[in-house]
Computed example of a mutant assay.
Amino acid sequence: MSATEAGGSQVKSAVRTVELLEFFAHRPGMHTLAAVQEAVGYPKSSLYMLLRTLVELGWVETDSTGTRYGIGVRALLVGTSYIDGDEVVAAAGPALDRLSEDTTETIHLARLDGTDVVYLATRQSQHYLRPFARVGRRLPAHSTSLGKALLATYTDDEVRALLPERLARHTERTVTDRERLIEELHLVREQGYAVDREENTLGLRCFGIAIPYRTPARDALSCSVPAARLTPAHEQRIKHALFDARDRLTHATRTL
């Protein structure tokens, strides 16, 4: 929703501030005033004053020329406080550690936010693997095992209401048809886990499982492994470890 579409109960300046911070959060790097204005559509004079205020408060930073703008350190502090104060993240620590030890692969805990999953915690692979997802990063739910595991806890009609008919393609293997994805979610419900078959990153396969401490689920665990190293036996170990981690984390979150 743009600031001009905000309802009467919303304060326009607050809506614009949030929209501006979200603009920077989704577009790393520094941006000119003209580029920001073109993206958000605010009057240039009021946008400039808002940016200067956010710079003074530390939410936005400028370069040495004072003409380019990017996200500030205050945003990092707030994001970190969200992770530090989240009860699920705290409860998940032992289960993530055990899953990492059992699989020796990269482990993620993520939360569904709209049509994306947001990464909340990570354990890096014991093998050499270039990091591809960090805490706070957003990825589309339809192309990740985490997202598909979570979408499978919704009804078909709820998934239709959430996702567009045509889904964004990230690799040649991405499922881009919503109805085909829904068919896959039927299988996810049957087997209890989801698979990303190089749909988000070529050469990388992922297995995801939802944590059912609430319905529909909002958090999931995943294990990522290079396709070249994934043998049938290793795949079975990963699936077994994921189910074990799900049970451990379900028990740990039973009072949340």
Score class of each variant (00 low, 15 high):
Val88Ile: 15
Glu172Ile: 14
Arg178Cys: 01
Thr67Phe: 04
Leu112Cys: 04
Lys12Tyr: 08
Leu256Pro: 06
Thr104Asp: 04
Pro94Cys: 08
Pro131Ala: 07
Val11Cys: 09
Arg27Gly: 03
Glu165Leu: 03
His251Asn: 11
Ser9Cys: 11
Leu96Met: 12
Ala25Leu: 12
Arg180Leu: 05
Leu150His: 03
Ile238Phe: 04
Ala91Trp: 10
Pro232Gly: 06
Ala75Arg: 06
Gly114Ile: 09
Ala35Pro: 08
Ala228Pro: 00
His142Asp: 01
Thr176Pro: 02
Ser125His: 06
His240Asn: 07
Leu230Trp: 02
Tyr48His: 11
Ser143Ile: 04
Thr215Cys: 01
Ala39Gly: 10
Glu183Lys: 04
Thr65Phe: 12
Ala241Arg: 06
Lys44Ser: 14
Lys239Cys: 07
Asn200Gly: 06
Leu112Ile: 09
Gly72Asn: 09
Phe24Ser: 08
Thr171His: 01
Glu19Cys: 10
Ala91Lys: 15
Thr171Lys: 01
Arg68Ser: 14
Glu38His: 14
Glu61Phe: 09
Gln10Leu: 13
Asp219Lys: 02
Ser224Gly: 08
Glu19Gly: 13
Ser222Pro: 07
Lys239Leu: 14
Thr253Asn: 08
Leu202Glu: 12
Ser100Phe: 03
Glu158Gly: 00
Thr171Trp: 00
Leu163Tyr: 05
Gly41Phe: 14
Thr176Val: 07
Tyr213Ile: 10
Pro212Ile: 07
Gln236Thr: 09
Glu101Asp: 14
Glu165Val: 02
Thr103Arg: 03
Thr4Lys: 10
Glu235Ser: 03
Arg180Lys: 09
Thr201Ser: 05
Val73Met: 11
Glu184Met: 00
Ala14Asn: 10
Arg178Tyr: 04
Leu146Val: 05
Leu204Trp: 09
Met49Asp: 15
Arg160Ile: 01
Glu235Ala: 06
Thr253Ala: 10
Ser100Glu: 09
Ser125Leu: 03
Val73Ile: 13
Pro216Tyr: 07
Pro140Asp: 03
His26Ile: 02
Cys223Lys: 03
Thr250Tyr: 13
Thr122Arg: 11
Gln37Met: 09
Thr201Met: 06
Glu22Met: 09
Leu230Ser: 01
Ser64Ala: 13
Phe207Leu: 06
Arg254Glu: 12
Ala227Met: 07
Glu190Ala: 11
Ala91Asn: 12
Gly70Thr: 13
